[in-house]
Amino acid sequence: MSVIIFAESSEGKFKKAVYEAVGYGKKLASQMGAQAIAVCASDVLPDEAELASLGQYGADKVVSVKLDAPRPAAMGDALAQVATAENAQVVIISNNYTGKSVSPVVAVKLKASVASGVVSMADTSNGFRVRKSVFSGKAFADVDMTSAVKVLAITPNSFSIEAGGSAAAVSSFAYAAGGNAYKVERVAIDQVKGKIPLTEAELVVSGGRGMKGPENWGMIEELAGLLGAATACSKPVSDMDWRPHEEHVGQTGITIKPNLYIAVGISGAIQHLAGVSSSKVIVAINKDPEAPFFKVADYGIVGDAFEVLPKLIEAAKSLKAAQ
């Protein structure tokens, strides 16, 4: 009996979301009396020490699978093969873009149901129940999963990282690629350098129409840079092409759950709030005291963005200097 955790590696390293998933998997495995097995399936495998280090975050053992190319279909197929070999009951996958392509493959291979956007530890006291966000963050649903194998795609930044264990044993798995594994071929890749991807960000500074035009985003970027935050925007801003679509948060953009969300010049339409309301701390800056954002914000500043932002930038600089 085991719980399998997908340990996605990027250029031979693991990201924070993997440690969250391993911690989640370990906790669930202990609850079920099972083993937590982290599986790294990649074309560029991390070195032995990096693989073994997953033990410190809760993995009882680590299985590495060498792939021919970085395709999610192959990752899912490999994960399913290891899951079958290890008699897995649950497969844990981080619900980032890679995970969203991997989960469906695992589901079909193992005839498993999938809960995506999971925000709670599974309740295994009577059946198998998890909580996931629905309506793009406007509500939560408790889902009862009845298939023999379950796939949980967990929301990044929702679970704590448990460090402190010891290195785990690493073994490799000989993967026989299924027919669908490598049918999609990479032609080119364009990784944004020197910027924190919004989906992985713990801190986010976001701008709306109140910023008046793309030429004013320098202030948003400067504040974000000082805080080590990612930048985001509202739907109108992305629709007007002031900012790229991948920065659009809200019901028809992406849903995020950072520790801090600072909204500048965003009124707080219901669709936008849906995408950010799970943020741990929300700051609204708007010159309209009636802006709906103030109803969901923890902290608010009623004022003109063009007067407030320079003050925040100065304060962030002094805070940084003092640290």
């Binding site: 873009y97 890679t98 071929e185 990479r186 080119a188 890749i189 991807p197 989906t199 992985e200």
Partner: peptide, 9 residues
């Protein structure tokens, strides 16, 4: 993709 984009065929 996470942190970028990929062209595929």
């Amino acid at each position: 993709i996470d942190g970028g984009r990929e062209t595929v065929k």
